[in-house]
Amino acid sequence: MKRLPRLDVTLAAALLSVLLANPAAAETPEEKGLAIAQEADRRDEGYEDSAATMQMILRNRQGEEATREIRSRALEVADDGDKSLIIFDEPKDVEGTALLTWSHKVEDDDRWLYLPALKRVKRIAGNNKSGPFMGSEFAFEDLGSQEVEKYTYQYLRDEACGDQTCFVVERYPVDKNSGYTRQVMWIDQTEYRAQKIEFYDRKKSLLKTLEFKDYAQYLDQYWRPARMDMVNHQTGKSTTLLFRDYRFRNGYSDRDFDQASLKTAR
């Protein structure tokens, strides 16, 4: 599992800093929205790789709860989307199952699943990225690498969020297979961290709200949330992700994120 609110570099840093240093310059809401996304992406650049342990807690309207344990690793890729590896530890029947994702800026991501019972790697069709991840309220596209190019943007307004001030930016998925028509993001102005995202479905109704909580800073630069809460307003179901043991710069390489590595991932 890759950390969520990180966006990749796409434009020259110099150009970015010019744009951002002068927010009062006459720019369209579209330009400003894009600039905010790019700045957030720029600030997360250079983390190289990371690993974390994640607990997923699912709840339904009846009040039932289910918990799943997952380990995740991510590798920064300079001029394409990042690579990530998810290893399922429990339940026991899927122990050792591993999911490899190569995200791409524009094209469909590549995904493979290793099935230990078969000792085989199976490719997962790329166009179905909008489905739920392991029965949770998170879709693949919510969890995957948030490449800047996957959306178009529009800055809406500034707004207080908690004790900070946020940019409120709307973004529209480029991929027509997305489950969403738009998302509204709250990004704080001091550190450019996503604080909240509202997801609107194909009938343009509010479907879900995602909140990021308990951010901590690593390597004096990279902010990661310890908790993410996703609530589905239509079904009353919700999912909480709890992250722990963030580790950066583990020395991973491309060879740790290829199909062969899936079989040995532990």
């Binding site: 099935l115 990225k129 029965g135």
Partner: peptide, 23 residues
């Protein structure tokens, strides 16, 4: 096999699009 069918199910679930899941 119990583990095989669980892994099939996981693979299938990961392959379904928006709205057509097994929830």
């Amino acid at each position: 096999q119990s583990d095989l069918s669980a892994q099939y199910l996981l693979l299938y679930e990961l392959s379904l699009p928006f709205g057509l899941d097994l929830n």
